[in-house]
């Protein structure tokens, strides 16, 4: 092998080796800095995070066209991948403009231009994350998240539940519905607590998934219009006279019409009945 050729090969090899090592370092750096923190929410229409990081050109045109200035480009040293747009719901949530100006501003389609109806946006999913702190679970009336929700009544509804503590009141529990929640973050921003009990999370963190093999019998039954298997025999209880069993409701019931009660003739005994059980229900 002549000298020139040897020199050329040596040089090429050392350059390739150096560049390769640099590439590995760059790869590790970019890998470790490409995870989106849970509280950073992408603008409406953003592609799935993996695709978004390949499509977003980091120009900030969406930031400039947001009329409420809620979007920011991640700066060096922040957890969000550098230069990419995001907002923090607790600080300033998406106002859900009808014309979604940030989306057509995107020159690369990292914010998909297919999104034209803001109610179809899925920036994340609100989750009632701390039931211990939410005052609705303590039996207090609040419903601020329900009332501020831009998809009012559909994305968050109020479900009434029995207040076991007082035994005589209702809890007005906010429940999020994933089929309508856009992840705008208004509920998190408005939550009256020191730290929000309801938070918008990336959908992949917020949502569980039922195994694909699950079939919900009652839905299948409804779809088919009849039971798909041999119908269950109605179970018959051997109950004392004057009692019956309510299968889809309260359970064991006493017939009102029966006069012959199994209770003492002293009315006070009847009035105090059940008090002990109620007491023991208290925490």
């Amino acid at each position: 092998m002549n000298k020139q050729r040897r020199q050329f090969l040596e040089k090429t090899l050392s350059t390739a080796c150096g560049v390769g090592m640099l590439g590995a370092a760059l790869l590790i750096h970019s890998r470790s800095s490409s995870a989106l923190p849970a509280q950073a929410i992408r603008p409406p229409g953003a592609l799935a995070e993996e695709d978004f990081l390949g499509a977003c050109i980091r120009c900030g045109l969406c930031v400039r066209d947001c009329p409420y200035d809620i979007l920011k480009l991640a700066q060096a040293g922040e957890d969000t991948p550098i230069g990419t747009p995001y907002f923090t719901a607790r600080t300033a949530a998406c106002e859900m403009c009808d014309d979604i100006p940030c989306v057509p501003a995107c020159p690369t389609g990292a914010l998909s231009h297919d999104l034209t109806d803001i109610e179809q946006a899925r920036m994340g999913l609100a989750v009632m994350i701390d039931q211990e702190a939410c005052i609705a679970f303590l039996g207090l009336r609040c419903e601020v998240c329900f009332n501020i929700c831009p998809v009012r009544g559909k994305a968050i509804s109020i479900t009434r539940r029995h207040n076991v503590r007082s035994g005589q009141h209702a809890l007005f529990i906010p429940v999020v519905h994933s089929e309508a929640c856009t992840g705008c973050g208004k509920c998190e921003q408005a939550c009256i607590l020191e730290k929000a009990a309801i938070k918008v999370l990336p959908t992949h963190l917020a949502q569980g998934q039922l195994g694909e093999h699950y079939r919900l019998g009652w839905r299948e039954k409804q779809k088919a219009g009849e039971a798909l298997v041999t119908p269950d025999q109605m179970h018959e209880y051997n109950l004392p006279e004057g009692m019956h069993y309510d299968h889809a409701g309260e359970g064991l019931m006493m017939d009102d019409s029966v006069d012959d009660t199994p209770f003492s003739s002293n009315p006070l005994d009847t009035l105090k009945r059940g008090q002990d059980t109620l007491r023991s229900d208290k925490p």
């Binding site: 760059l26 790869l27 695709d51 990081l53 390949g54 977003c56 050109i57 980091r58």
Partner: peptide, 10 residues
């Protein structure tokens, strides 16, 4: 190879 804008992170 990665499908993301690796260089833009630096």
């Amino acid at each position: 190879l990665t499908g993301t804008l690796v260089w833009e992170s630096l």
